[in-house]
């Protein structure tokens, strides 16, 4: 039986906080298919960030198995995980994490740099990615010359440029006003149509409303896992105008 894009089987993650053992994930099992737009919700300390880090191959589970695209990745080395993040994943962060004093284009090129692509191919693909997020005319701008929404779109272009199967977004709208947040959610919704899976961590239910599936985490366990009719994000004028 072909596996789903993401399959977690009884994943446990323990941390040592000094002498105390903290169980961040207490046996999580879930499956996410290609093209899904999943929102992971939970209060702070619920384990949602740990879950995100594991799904994003930034961390390894203490026990349990994780299959990404049919391959088990739970026991890979740091270098192998880096390779997977580079080729199969894209990250979007709350605080954008763009390199300061570096142009939008160069920021977007970053994942391709670690793929070892030659300069002209990098620039070409980064340009295409920026056009995809409607920032074709801001390529040479530095992050501090861009608005918050534009910065986050540069970050999304950076996540997209490596043509990943999965994009992980950690509170991507946390630093944005509500109108720009809707723009960004519209962008994420459009990715699903192209077969890109989006996993979004948020604690705002009106942001989670744009997802087609909501997973609620509490005390390291999946509390609720429900599909929903996603609220359609209206493409704001700012995005279509630019």
């Amino acid at each position: 039986m072909p596996r789903e894009l993401i399959e977690l089987e009884q994943v446990v993650k323990n941390y040592h906080m000094g002498d105390v053992l903290v169980q961040a994930l207490a046996g999580v099992s879930l499956k996410i298919s290609s093209g899904e737009f999943v929102a992971i919700m939970g209060s702070s300390g619920s384990g949602k960030s740990t879950l995100m880090n594991l799904v994003g191959c930034l961390d390894r589970p203490t026990s349990g198995r994780y299959f990404l695209g049919g391959n088990e990745v739970s026991q890979l080395s740091r270098d192998q995980l880096a390779e997977i993040r580079n080729r199969q994943l894209g990250f979007v962060f709350q605080n954008f994490n763009l390199l300061a004093r570096t142009s939008a284009l160069e920021n977007v090129e970053l994942p391709l740099l670690y793929q070892g692509l030659p300069t002209n191919q990098r620039a070409e693909r980064a340009r295409a990615a920026l056009e995809r997020v409607a920032l074709g005319d801001r390529m040479d701008h530095l992050p501090n010359q861009l608005s918050g929404g534009q910065q986050q779109r540069v970050a999304i272009a950076r996540a997209l440029v490596g043509e990943p199967k999965l994009i992980l977004a950690d509170e991507p709208t946390g630093n944005l006003d509500s109108k720009t947040s809707v723009d960004v959610m519209a962008l994420f919704q459009s990715l699903g149509k192209n077969g890109i899976t989006v996993v979004l961590v948020t604690h705002e239910s009106d942001i989670a409303a744009f997802a087609s599936r909501v997973i609620e985490v509490r005390d390291g366990r999946v509390l609720v896992d429900r599909k929903q009719q996603a609220q359609r994000a209206q493409q704001a004028e700012s995005l279509s105008a630019t």
Binding site: A82, R85, Y114, R158
Partner: peptide, 16 residues
């Protein structure tokens, strides 16, 4: 530190 974290997240290996 954050830049290093980001580079690692987008696929930089420790050696790089």
């Amino acid at each position: 530190t954050r830049e290093i974290g980001l580079r690692m997240a987008v696929g930089a290996k420790p050696r790089q």
